[in-house]
Design a protein around this nucleic acid. Sequence first.
DNA 1: AATTCGTCTGAATTAGATATTCCAAGACGA
DNA 2: TCGTCTTGGAATATCTAATTCAGACGAATT
Lengths: 285, 285
Amino acid sequence: MSPLVKIRSERDQMSAVERRIADFILENAQLLRDYSSQQLANALGISQSSVVKFTQKLGFKGYPDLKYSVGEAIARADNGDATHVATKAAEAHDESGVGSLWRRKSEAEEETRLINTPDTLQAVADAMATAGAKGKVFMIGLGDDDIYARSFALRLSLLGIPTVHNFDAARMAASVSAAGAGDVLLVFSEHGNHPALCKIGRFFRERRGRLITVTRHTSNPLRALADIALLVSAHDDRPYIQPVLYQSALQHLLDGVFVQLCEGDEQRHVQLLSNLERVQQMLDP
Amino acid sequence: MSPLVKIRSERDQMSAVERRIADFILENAQLLRDYSSQQLANALGISQSSVVKFTQKLGFKGYPDLKYSVGEAIARADNGDATHVATKAAEAHDESGVGSLWRRKSEAEEETRLINTPDTLQAVADAMATAGAKGKVFMIGLGDDDIYARSFALRLSLLGIPTVHNFDAARMAASVSAAGAGDVLLVFSEHGNHPALCKIGRFFRERRGRLITVTRHTSNPLRALADIALLVSAHDDRPYIQPVLYQSALQHLLDGVFVQLCEGDEQRHVQLLSNLERVQQMLDP
DNA sequence: AATTCGTCTGAATTAGATATTCCAAGACGA
DNA sequence: TCGTCTTGGAATATCTAATTCAGACGAATT
């Protein structure tokens, strides 16, 4: 039972001094944290030993025991709205727009998480894994997208999946020209309407490769071509925030695929770990 | 901030004895309630004074203060679990560790947000802005870090800040060789111990440039050189998660600086907006 | 009315916990 | 190699909590 409830319930059968202690605690529970038994006694003009006896009578081991119990009770009580620590902290900081950024990022990431079902992530991860075993993964993105394509490509490489990343359409075209069944092409394009990329995508599909697109959550020509389409959702009026959100959400999505890839299948998991170990060995000495 | 998060985030730059204390507390937080500083010391085979010093180093008034804070945190957490069954269930439903990833990411990002004060972000943003007016921003990162250096460099360029980004130390050395007062060098190095980067940093400072480092939250030679040090905190046992968290936290940090840069100063804000508009005009038609 | 008993309280004491000081050993740079 | 700095522990000082003991008060009994 909460210590405060206990105190209240016993209050009526207490002596005068005890009742004063009880009342003080009930009214100033949050102050208790900084009071020693002596200070509390002083504040009430009574002796320290009375305070200790009070706590023992109530069934606590001693004064600190009561103190900690009350502290916990308060913590539990005012927890009501502290749902997500991150959100809370972000809101508290909320000065100069930076605080709001964290919230907007969370929102964008969450939206993105919701519009891509776990099944989709799993399907993408499986496609990568298959390509890792029987073929190659090609990856391309232009502009800002190239960075995330590259980052993701590096991660796949670390897992032992043969990955080809190109910065521009011309090189990609060359790389893809000989692709075939068992290969995967991952195209990053925020708006999904870059003609060169669409063309490469179409060609790749004709060669029986699996096409995965990563675009904004709109209907766009690139997405229409895809075997599997990953979608990113992010909105903000401010022109300089917009890309930050898009990139966060995109990164978030890729993180999800990556972990799914690492952990989705037991056998794969083991194999990937040994891969990483070999990489470490090469780098360490 | 939750005392446990705080302990976690500082753990990496603790001495051996301190780390043992940290680990014990993290693993047995609920036991703390019944431990005196002396008992805790005995349990770990260390001296009582070390325990007290540990708590003070972390910013608590003393051992009881820490103990009390941990108690509150646990109480809050317990309650959280009980009340937010829905959230819990949702996370359980997208199984196989992907659910936990989002939480781990949030934690890493939060930690990182906490160890870099708003003042630091502001200082970095100001340094960039000044460099944009009177000099140049140089940026370098090796390995995985290069991606984030590049991404950030692109953003700065969009804002009209002259930015030089290099993928390798040799080119950077060449770029930096003529740097001077008014210039800023931003060095990304997860472990902060790359000799070539330290050397470039030292040289750059001799040329009176401002050196900003971005490293893991440990004490490392690179960070020691810096005018301003940005810190990233991220931990996970799983070798494939670790980099994901590091990169998320890093990205998060850079986002913060970027927004601070965009919104921190009214005049700058207006100017940056018009810049963006011009960029749009060039790309649109 | 005086005595006795029980209860309550505080002063004094003791026990216990926490904080500080000081010193030795090791790490790090010059 | 020699300071210098850092770290951890022993000893100590300070503070806190718990117990003991004695006096005060009141109710019940003779």
